[in-house]
Design a protein around this nucleic acid. Sequence first.
DNA 1: GTGAAAGCGCTAACAG
DNA 2: CTGTTAGCGCTTTCAC
Lengths: 356, 356
Amino acid sequence: MSAPTVYDVAERSGVSIATVSRVYRNPDSVRAQTRERVLDAARELGYVPSGNARGLASRTTGVLGLCFPDYADPDAEADAEADSDADDAVMLYSDQIIRGMERAARRHGYALLIAASLEGGPESLVAKVAGRVDGFAVLAQTVPTEDLEVISRRLPVVMLAGPREIDHLDHIVVANADGERELARHLIEDHGLRRLAFIGGEVASPDAEARFRGFQEACRDAGLPVPDAPDMRAEMMTQAEGARTAEAMLDRYAGLSDTERPQAMLFANDQMAVGALRALERRGVRVPEDLAVTGFDGIPLSRIVRPPLTTVRQPIRQLGEQAVELLVQRLGDREREPVSLMLPVSLARRASCGCG
Amino acid sequence: MSAPTVYDVAERSGVSIATVSRVYRNPDSVRAQTRERVLDAARELGYVPSGNARGLASRTTGVLGLCFPDYADPDAEADAEADSDADDAVMLYSDQIIRGMERAARRHGYALLIAASLEGGPESLVAKVAGRVDGFAVLAQTVPTEDLEVISRRLPVVMLAGPREIDHLDHIVVANADGERELARHLIEDHGLRRLAFIGGEVASPDAEARFRGFQEACRDAGLPVPDAPDMRAEMMTQAEGARTAEAMLDRYAGLSDTERPQAMLFANDQMAVGALRALERRGVRVPEDLAVTGFDGIPLSRIVRPPLTTVRQPIRQLGEQAVELLVQRLGDREREPVSLMLPVSLARRASCGCG
DNA sequence: GTGAAAGCGCTAACAG
DNA sequence: CTGTTAGCGCTTTCAC
């Protein structure tokens, strides 16, 4: 009793397999009466068209893919309450992209195949994805460049966030530098702050680095001293690290007078800023009266914390949607020149910088 | 210039197509030197194995699927800040399941194909998914039962949440009734409350209904009057609706004395409870002093609101993980008896009921 | 409108 | 360890 095929359905309904095929592919090309016979037979048999066979024969899958970073050790015990916020941050990011892609894909009639990259997975599962989709998106640093090199010669690939590693690929980033520059400018010009401290992430994070560059630009533009490195770096960009770095900053500047110590801390992301907010509260530092605090990302939590966090909203979902648009476009025209999109970000002025 | 195939690689590396196939399927079964030759040729050619052809020939895809409800009109303009919380609630739910499934699937070497069901989609996209996966999970009320009936005869399907519509399918639910009963019991026994109001959702929501049943049980167990319907129903189970119903309740009981009006409002989910919290604050009702408030779900927001919300944590992610486990099991043994799992929930006692 | 025949690119025995 | 030979289940011309 193996699964029924077009042959079974054809036989049972007294038509040829070509007709069965037509019924599923282009129902109107078959006389209504014939069509019903076929459909009935299919129902009785429990027939489900094989996507594989279809794909093989038609050379398209109707599926788009996404490779994203391994956001958690899959072998880790699932403990809802104890999940680290590091996890959460990355996951939220991936979730949003998945949402965006799924939504856009659906609009174009595609389904979405997702796969997180294992650490040192065998034959990288990108291969698995690549072979089953019409095109796919890759989050930066998820897939070895050399693999992409090979794969992208055979099907559309769009790189998301991070540097454009392969120049013939479509590529989308968010305006990290612009956003941070605008944020710093706001603090400097609108709030009259002069002494700003930037708390960065690991050097390997292209996003965090780009944000720091934006910070530098704002300093330069305002005629303030331009630091050549973040005042401090956090390895993880988590709430815990945010709290830790905030306290470390406090200690570092403890001996300084009010006119010397920083008036604002700009964190490379919201998670850290939120952690800092809590640490500062514990230490009796009032935000924004004593110190302004800002983040980056615009995660939901940023609106909920007290004081609400001034931050830069990243259009993460749109990143996913745009990715699909580019893939669909390229599927329609393989010759189109590769594009590199930079999605605009927007400043969310809230209480933590003294606004509102 | 069509995509290179095993034949191209075989020719270029001077081996047979069988060997090329082996290199990708079971590298150790090929002499290292031969393997390298093949791999080199593949690299030069830009060869990517066709998942479709593999699937066709091997009768497995290495992909599991998930059909979930259309959580938002795909044609709606994406406006991050303006997304309704209705959206968010459903999305968070789906996201968690996706996460859980992806994680578990990866652990078993599967990728995950996801597709939200269109409203009146053509030939329901379940067909699309069904044809491309080895098995899949379906969120309740996502796929017409009759379709499932047919499809589930040919590949493993597991139903998630909601009633078990087809009895030969594996099925997983969370202990909605148990959770709400325990929650109500806590209010009654531990806090000594006697007058509880339950705010339900739409009648069509199996979850909300199950929670109400749990509420009824607790009332009965405690010898309190047992209502035969929720005190009030919200159509959407959103924050806005929660706020609205909370105010309506306030108005309804405005004329009663302190010893007559409800001492607690039990909402069918967290979203509503959170909305209620805000509405109550606006109306000057103190929680929990004047009125206890509880939710259900254990969404992240429930921990963050003030006062933190007493709720019942649903192991949504585990729902996804378990779904994969069942699918994998069944893939290994088609004859296994269908199982129906009920995942335990846990009470999160927080300030909104008077705890902590 | 419908049928016949030829693959799509790979895996799966079986030989050797 | 490697090659040969059949299909896997469908879409696609091209006839009728």
